[in-house]
């Protein structure tokens, strides 16, 4: 993004490849800048997170749930959908023209969307009424400032927002025509069998020529919490970008370093609890080539970095949950 002079470029490259390597902020090659994360920053979203890498890169992610009708003509699908969008604030990229910014947004969106919407990651509790209604989960990520390493920040913030997302509980409502006792409540129940069923008895008219005798709808029961978490939230991947400056690679580049060594390898890993880690996305970005043997080493190293990042993020997210529960309890005490 940033364009730097040849002299600066070679100065940075020389520093990175020197032994011992030196970076402008005194970090080692594999050191990350400090990352600050807070969840629940958008009160109207179903899940949100704000992430900042050393105050230089700032990303807000928010997940919002909408009810969608599952129909032939519409986009809605049984079991729900996930749509990811990345938008970049023009203030984050003051040097880019609006068309370049649009392209950048489209690239980031397609990367995040294709990675997170893969069927193997789909949460199972986004259905409401089978064949009728489902949740549309839209994840919007906003890049407020880019101080380098936006890709890792995007995936971290998305994971935190999706982790924080609560799906409201729903209860199926069924209107049953009299005389059809055989039709017991099976179809009206939401996936996962949550909630009881309200069965309204309706007097059947002799002139009723409707084909469907059972209309189903749902309601939101009033409950003390905001709903249940997304199913399989441990599966959301974390991404790590390896910046390649052969023969070395380094992590968490600043924007100057990104401009100086443009070849990057993005690796997204998921760490399910029972099974070994799986790779969810891999992209080579920027001009340059690698040899297969190097690549093997890079992927192995990347998995270890991603595991460390995953562990740190999980600890932070659990901490955040405890903190927010405590805050909610205090507020409850205050209003009592």
């Amino acid at each position: 993004m940033l364009s730097i002079s040849k002299a600066e470029k070679s100065y940075i490259q020389a520093g990175l490849t020197a032994s011992p390597p030196s970076r402008s902020d005194g970090r080692g090659l594999l050191d990350c800048r400090s990352v600050a994360l807070e969840t629940g920053v958008a009160p109207l979203a179903n899940g949100s997170a704000r992430l900042s890498i050393a105050g230089a890169t700032e990303v807000i992610a928010a997940a919002k749930l909408d009810v969608e009708t599952v129909d032939d003509g519409t986009e809605g699908r049984d079991g729900g959908r996930l749509i990811c969008t990345v938008s970049c604030s023009p203030s984050a990229y003051p040097n880019l023209s609006s068309s370049t910014l649009d392209d950048l947004q489209a690239d980031l969106t397609s990367l995040l969307h294709t990675t997170l919407t893969h069927p193997t990651l789909h949460p199972q509790n986004l259905g409401i009424l089978p064949g009728k209604k489902s949740w549309l989960l839209s994840l919007d990520v906003l890049v407020l400032a880019d101080g380098g390493n936006v890709l890792d920040a995007l995936f971290l913030a998305s994971r935190a927002a999706l982790w924080d997302t609560r799906v409201p509980r729903t209860r199926g409502v069924e209107y049953k025509a009299r005389g059809r006792t055989a039709a017991t409540a099976t179809g009206g129940q939401g996936e996962g069998g949550r909630g009881d069923m309200d069965v309204d008895q309706e007097v059947q008219s002799g002139f009723d020529s409707r084909m469907i005798h059972r209309a189903t709808d749902f309601e939101l029961p009033d409950y003390w919490d905001e709903g249940e978490v997304l199913e399989g939230r441990e599966r959301w991947p974390v991404a790590v970008t390896l910046n390649l400056e052969p023969p070395i690679h380094f992590l968490d580049a600043t924007s100057q370093e990104e401009a100086a060594s443009p070849l990057r390898l993005l690796l997204a890993f998921a760490f399910p609890q029972e099974t070994p880690p799986v790779m969810q996305a891999m992209r080579m970005l920027g001009p340059g080539e690698v040899v297969l043997t190097e690549l093997k080493e890079l992927i192995k190293a990347g998995e270890n970095y991603a595991r460390a990042m995953h562990a740190a993020l999980n600890t932070k997210l659990r901490e955040e949950e405890v903190r927010r529960n405590q805050r909610a309890r205090e507020r409850f005490e205050l209003h009592r």
Partner: peptide, 13 residues
């Protein structure tokens, strides 16, 4: 040499 590597979906290392 490899110029591009593009992976999506779920795969073991």
């Amino acid at each position: 040499t490899i110029t591009s590597l593009w992976q999506s979906g779920q795969m073991r290392q």
